[in-house]
Amino acid sequence: MDKRNVFSSVFFILIAAFVLVTSTGLGIGQLNNPRPGLFPFTASICLIVFCVALLVDNFRHKNSLITLAGLWQDSNWRKNIIVIAALIIYTIFLAVIGYIPATFALMIVLFIIEGMKTWLAIANSALAVTVSYALFQYILKIPLPRSIWGL
């Protein structure tokens, strides 16, 4: 049994069920007068059907067991956890402190995670932020996020 299929099917069935309920609230209408809920309603039913098919097929075939933990075996998954956490914190703080300090801090974290020495990471981050800010803000005239103080 492939646990990846079991887990993902159940996850998508839950999503489909949620969409099904929400689309019913939007109004399904009739074929001669389809309402906004008709399309997501139909898509979610089809999604449930295919997920069930995947589940049934998975239980029918007696392949070797593939566990979820096995997916991250022999991989440097801790790196990804730190990167994802850093990205979440970055998104939260970006709107408050603006592009330059938030991105500078993020880049330091990313460079250090990748094994760069701290002083080199700081220098490279400063360079990356300066060049990207100059390129997008001044040359390409694409405004980058500012802090709540307008900086």
Binding site: F111, E114, N124, A128, F136, P145
Partner: peptide
């Protein structure tokens, strides 16, 4: 160690600049 952080930086700018929206 240089390439991947820079790709992430470009991903951020690329996503933001579509609507100038965090």
């Amino acid at each position: 160690r240089i390439l991947y952080p820079l790709i992430i930086l470009f991903c951020i700018i690329g996503a933001f600049s579509i609507n100038n929206n965090i």
